[in-house]
Design a protein around this nucleic acid. Structure first.
Lengths: 341, 341
DNA sequence: CTGAAAGCGCTTACAG
DNA sequence: CTGAAAGCGCTTACAG
């Protein structure tokens, strides 16, 4: 059933080179000849064999996306933007989930490399990306990172304005007179560090001193949205509510929020009357709760689009070898006011 | 930097055939020879060029997944299960979002076919899949469908137990004495039809007659979770609450629920006191609302896994040409009781 | 146990 | 404007 370029050439009475020229528009061909080729193509319902083209051109038009936790909708939206951006230039996305485990991440990259990919986008599970030095030593493909800045390996990076976003939220709280504001983050990393800086600056600018008891983190373990409901964040929140005189909580990412808000809800604490609440990361469900939850919205889809753009630029500008040109792009966040403050 | 099989052969003092035999274990090779090859491989940090292997073997180890609406977490979880299942056999997933538009779906399939894929999984935007007949006529690859049964094209299908799941939920309501139960679905299709059958049977078995006014649908337009909040479902709910004496609402999918619950919440109706509420499709956020929302949980991850298994079976059994062997697999749903009933 | 050689189906200098 | 031919880097009958 499947026909090859040879059959087309034979049927059209030309060489396979001419068929290729017509199909790719790489050389001028006499209109009459072109028609004969096109007729033969249609008659045989011929399609170029991409496997052969790939080998010949040394490219696959495939980009790998290794994502730290695909069950987190934040990353799903990044994938959405990335896919859309790549599609514009005829590239396609291969998705691999690391499930918050570094070893899976490494395995995924290896797996991707053993297939054929032209570029790599990574949302790393932890900042340590030194393993890439070895893995990529014989694969000169561009790599872009999203959400966390890598250590031990260089590439383009796309991050949110974590510090500013948090600062904005804290300012909303301090403007309303809050002085005892807790900061809860699911786990410490470079991104969380930036948010913490925003928190501290926000307090400082309002003349409030930082209380170390009010700052809590989860652990580096793998955590799913579901298990988080009654996990470490839940306990931290419970402790803060019971034993400290906090009047506001800033939850520094969507994973933490699941545990924090579960606790708030189950404790019968009134939001915002007893405690005001703001979360980093927006989602549609934040309007389904009572009250609706104010949020610092990231723009994950845009982050994905930009990561895609950065990778694609490496192909067109053939900058892929120029290490000095790596870009760090910040995507701005936006405070979304709702009844929880 | 990149070395080829030739260089390995040269360095090891053997033929390229022998290198291939060692690397693939396809033929017995003298241990001593094997060691020389392996040493050369390590020394050169050689990796097989997948592009060449693909051409030679006529496969890409790539499966395309064309998903009707990737912003819907239901499909994201299917992708998760599918990816995991395929990874087990060394296959990788290419993801394409149709954004609820048939034309995008067709474009995605074309795009995928013009690249190299060994199989296709489709969550179709509408049941009409006759376009595949033409597109796949020269691409003899297996196709599996999830979530909706295709019309005009055959393949393996994975569906939830839509009728039974709905029946279970309605029974919970009728057992509690509800007689005026509304059914709201975001749009009519084969899957929704099955749920509607479950609804009607549930009422019938409880000796309650169906009231056509209580059954409402959205339109076939593209709908995002966000825009749905105050869309057609919201209006239907508002109408039902204001003008009919309903005591319970069954929302037949997660998209509808966003609009329905938004309206319930904003209307100040007390759940479950004034109106009991159950939704099809579970999600973590259903416990964040007040009250938590009871749900008929599908198992999208399992649906993805099974779809992957069905595709992989077609490769190993070389059944891909046997049209008569198509399977329809039902993944069971589970009622999850929460305070909304 | 090992190798020479064909061939997967293209694209692209090169020649005319 | 068109074609003969090299070659991308593998795998695999086939021969010995």
């Amino acid at each position: 059933m499947k026909s090859s370029i040879k059959e087309v050439a034979y049927l059209a009475g030309v060489s396979i080179a001419t068929v290729s020229y017509v199909l790719n528009g790489t050389k001028k061909v006499r209109p009459e000849t072109e028609k004969r080729v096109l007729d033969a193509v249609k008659k045989l319902n011929y399609h170029v064999n991409p496997l052969a083209r790939n080998l010949r051109k040394g490219e696959s038009k495939l980009i790998g996306f290794v994502v730290s936790d695909f069950s987190n909708y934040f990353y799903q939206e990044i994938a959405l933007g990335l896919e859309a951006q790549l599609a514009k230039e005829g590239y396609r996305l291969i998705l691999m989930d690391s499930k918050e485990q570094k070893e899976n991440e490494i395995e995924n990259v290896k797996n991707l490399l053993s297939g054929a990919i032209d570029g790599l986008v990574i949302a790393p599970t932890t900042e340590d990306c030194s393993y890439l030095r070895f893995l990529l030593s014989n694969h000169p493909i561009p790599v872009a990172f999203v959400d966390r800045r890598p250590e031990g390996f260089e590439g383009d990076v796309v991050l949110a304005t974590n510090e500013q976003g948090t600062y904005d939220a804290i300012k909303v709280l301090t403007d309303k007179g809050h002085k005892d504001i807790a900061f809860l983050g699911s786990r410490m990393d470079s991104t969380m560090e930036e948010r913490l800086v925003g928190y501290k600056k926000g307090l400082q600018d309002a003349g409030i001193s930082v209380n170390a008891n009010y700052i809590r983190f989860g652990n580096h373990e793998s955590v799913s949205q579901r298990s988080l409901r009654h996990g470490l964040m839940y306990n931290h929140t419970s402790d803060l509510i019971s034993n400290y005189k906090i009047t506001a909580i800033f939850s520094a990412n969507n994973l933490a929020t699941v545990g924090v808000f579960s606790c708030i809800k189950e404790s019968g604490v009134k939001v915002p009357h007893d405690i005001a609440f703001i979360t980093f990361d927006d989602s549609f469900w934040l309007t389904m709760t009572s009250p609706a939850i104010a949020a610092v919205a990231q723009n994950p889809e845009e982050m994905g689009r930009v990561a895609g753009r950065l990778i694609l630029e490496r192909f067109s500008n053939s900058l892929s070898t120029r290490k000095d040109s790596y870009q760090e792009v910040r995507i701005s966040t936006q405070f979304i006011e709702r009844n929880s403050v």
